[in-house]
Amino acid sequence: MSHTQDKSAALRQGVLIFIYLAALTALEYFIAITFKAVSILVIVAMIKAALVMYYYMHIYKLNAESEDDEHSYEYKTGTNRLGLWLFLLSDSFVFAGLMTTRINLLGLTRPHLDQLLGLVVTAILLLSSFFMNRGETAMSHGDKKSFMNNTLVTFVLGLGFLLGVVLVEWRLAAEGGLVASFGNPAAGPMGAVFYIMTGMHAFHVLTGLIFLGVVWNNARKNLYSARQHWGVEAAAVYWHFVDLVWIFYYPALYLIGRVV
């Protein structure tokens, strides 16, 4: 498979996928406010996840042929890639466990949250994934400057998401009465589930931001080339994974069920 033969074609593909993802997110929102069909929301989320895993995280590269020489950079990158994906597989069990907790404790109800804010932070995270993809594409064609600019934009958007959730959303939710029951024995599991899910995700966003900072700094030191940039690829895949989790968490917290 030759998905990234030509730089402009690869960039164009990134734009196209972003448009698909944005349209599907809008569709999700529309479904949620009109006919509330959970099964359709699940299907849409799975389509989005598949698009991200294939076109942004390049899962097919796990299958890429590499040279026989076990000491070559390509061969080691193949091993590293496998290791990263195994880690993500393991990590996804944490998120799946939290999702199970949510389904078990809340069922078809959801907390009262600011819908507009939810849509905005989701859009910001999606946009950051788009710029991350542009950055990685640039690096794999040796364009360090474009990589650094795009990564910077990704970083700023990611920071915006993190602050939007932790500073704005958490405060608004708490003011609206959604508390993790600090000293409030009457508070139900709603707040607990909301804060643990967004909190665990925010923790991953934070580690992703640190990762982006590290590769940005190393790119500044000219450590990556078109042929050798495993660090960049790893940071990008990890960042898209953070987005992937939110693809499921956003509908689970904002769209599914009736507000309590």
């Binding site: 195994l86 597989l89 393991s90 990590d91 069990f93 944490v94 466990g97 939290l98 907790t101 404790l105 993790a180 029951s181 600090f182 000293g183 409030n184 024995p185 009457a186 508070a187 139900g188 599991p189 709603m190 707040g191 607990a192 589930v193 804060y195 643990i196």
Partner: peptide
């Protein structure tokens, strides 16, 4: 690789219930 995360998670939730009063497993809190 995969299942171990769940024992960590289950204990973490109890830990948070103790520290922050988050009522995951407290029937009185739902």
């Amino acid at each position: 690789l995969t299942a171990t995360q769940l024992i960590g998670l289950s204990f973490q939730l109890v830990m948070f219930q103790r520290l922050f009063g988050m009522g995951f497993f407290d029937p009185a809190k739902g």
